[in-house]
């Protein structure tokens, strides 16, 4: 069943391989799979690929951590306190209306062209979906379950920890996944705007050197890393969300 999804990529890959091998096309701008594998192996063997992967993953990791922490904290704050909501939410929503990439020049001006401005951009990309997810999840907790906590004598802290918390958890994980996806998007933007290493730099380097294979290898590595990170989040969430009564056919 799961293998059905591989049919189209494999057919396309094999066909393109055959076309290039038979000399009908050069494959310079669109290298065939064998060529890509060869390039990837060479980049991996020289250690170059790992340097780029490590740089990108460090940025994603830190940016995601800051963005998710800030989004969760502010979401909890505005979700828990009406005053904080009225005070902070309008400003946050106004900032959200600015396309995140519009911040790039300002971040560079404020924070320099090195790591800090990149982390700030990634963190901001992660922040908004997490903030919105946590806030709306808290606002949408079933009033009837809160009442159960009140009838059985829970304090407001008890209700927050034992009812609101668990009720918000599924949305929180979903928001983290969205945030992670945006984190990957913004790390590319951050690395394209000036970096000496990272997968985004590889993309730019491939373009300037006319090496389509380098670009494609970076793109494939991005896809694999993104999927792997998302799967890690899902794997963490599964034991915590086992109680859910939902159709969970695909992950």
């Amino acid at each position: 069943m799961k293998l059905t999804g591989f049919i189209i990529p494999i057919v396309l890959g094999v066909t393109w391989e055959a076309v290039v091998q038979s000399g009908l096309a050069t494959g310079r701008l669109m290298p065939p799979p064998s060529h890509l594998l060869h390039s990837a192996a060479a980049l991996a063997a020289s250690g170059e690929l790992w340097t780029h992967v490590a740089a990108t993953m460090t940025r994603i990791g830190l940016g995601f951590l800051f963005g998710a922490a800030a989004g969760t904290a502010l979401g909890v704050l505005t979700g828990a306190s009406g005053l904080a909501l009225r005070l902070l939410d309008p400003s946050i929503q106004a900032l959200r209306a600015i396309p995140s990439l519009a911040w790039v020049p300002l971040f560079i001006l404020w924070l320099g062209i090195f790591e800090t401005s990149k982390l700030a951009l990634i963190a901001m990309g992660v922040f908004f979906p997490v903030y919105l997810g946590v806030l709306s999840a808290i606002q949408n907790v079933d009033r009837k379950l809160i009442e159960v906590g009140r009838v059985f004598g829970l304090s407001s802290t008890g209700i927050a920890l034992r009812i609101t918390g668990p009720a918000v958890l599924p949305v929180w994980f979903a928001a983290l996944r969205t945030g992670l996806g945006l984190g990957f998007m913004f790390v590319v933007a951050a690395e394209l705007m000036g970096a000496s290493e990272g997968l985004g730099y590889m993309l730019l380097d491939g373009q300037q050197m006319g090496r389509a294979d380098t670009i494609l290898v970076a793109m494939i590595v991005f896809a694999l890393l993104g999927k792997a990170c998302d799967s890690i989040l899902v794997a963490i969430s599964i034991p915590v969300l086992r109680w859910q009564d939902t159709a969970r056919a695909t992950l």
Partner: peptide, 28 residues
Amino acid sequence: QAIGAVFQEPRLLPWLKIGANIAFGGQR
């Protein structure tokens, strides 16, 4: 005195197993 309540709907906490849901009523 302590109050116990049963609502129109069961209102069990979906993230607690049956035993833990029953135990939830005995906070004290």
